[in-house]
């Protein structure tokens, strides 16, 4: 399926030679890959390999030192986050970020009010209620976000991202820290997004989820692209195993 998607369509996201350093540390070093419409691409790699930084560069949280980010043929390198959001890039955060002083419904309205297909007032509230139901938080619209469990905060964050009607959804370890039941529900939820044709780039350590969801994986190590391919192949790749287990030559 992935090969077919790649050959038939122009990429939705193309990243070319992306680089970002923090002081002397090169967190992302010449990273290139593509994501095609309707694909779920897993971004893998050991801790500290630059995955979150890569998402930050794509979503406009950080500006790259070099390289390009091309969204649907348009060069969007270095645009501020709010403009990229309006162009259709939505994300969740590795350290989950809900708006604790707002209700669940208001948290989702935040995603509806300023996005690509903005809604406000009664329409926004009802669309937010539908999205809350979608992620399994239905009927809890007026509860404050501050009382949510960790797993529910993750759901709320996803509802807020979906409220933006994203063309590309970036998930940063969205499944991390969930208990087993939540994990099953979470995987099903992402699968249902895929079935609707949503395009997803997901950083994930839960390999079962990657096997179940991803069409293709990009593997990073020390900021660099070290492997790419279908999950089964990539996870059996010698360089990938070495990166995860630690390189004994080093």
């Amino acid at each position: 399926m992935s090969a077919a998607l790649q050959s038939q369509t122009a990429p939705l996201l193309r990243v070319e030679g992306l680089r970002r350093a923090f002081g002397g540390l090169v967190a992302v070093d010449g990273l290139s890959f593509t994501v095609h419409p309707g694909e779920i691409v897993g971004l893998l790699g050991p801790n500290g390999s630059g995955k979150t930084t890569a998402l930050n560069l794509i979503s406009g949280a950080l500006a790259p030192d070099a390289g390009r980010v091309v969204l649907d043929g348009r060069d969007v390198t270095g645009l501020p986050a709010h403009r990229l959001t309006r162009l259709g890039i939505a994300r969740t955060f590795q350290l989950v970020r809900v708006l604790p002083g707002l209700s669940l419904n208001e948290n989702v309205v935040a995603g509806l009010a300023f996005g690509r297909e903005p809604a406000w007032g009664a329409e926004a509230r009802s669309r937010a209620a539908t999205l809350l139901t979608r992620v399994g938080l239905g009927g809890r619209d007026n509860q404050p976000a501050s009382i949510l469990t960790y797993g529910d905060q993750k759901r709320l964050e996803l509802a807020r991202a979906l409220a933006l009607s994203p063309r590309l959804l970036l998930l940063d370890e969205w499944l991390a820290g969930l208990n087993l039941t939540e994990l099953r529900g979470g995987i099903d939820l992402i699968a249902s997004l895929r079935d609707e044709g949503c395009t997803v780039l997901m950083v994930e350590h839960v390999m079962d989820a990657i096997r179940a969801l991803a069409n293709r994986c990009v593997v990073m190590n020390a900021g660099q692209h070290i492997a790419e391919g279908p999950p089964a192949e990539v996870l059996a790749d010698h360089a990938v195993i070495q990166a995860y287990l630690g390189d004994d030559d080093a």
Partner: peptide, 24 residues
Amino acid sequence: SRLGFALHVIGEDETVARHVGIDT
């Protein structure tokens, strides 16, 4: 208004505000 709500979101979390499309 949307502007007032935008300010509220900024006060809660400015990073989130930018990533929901608010020109903070």
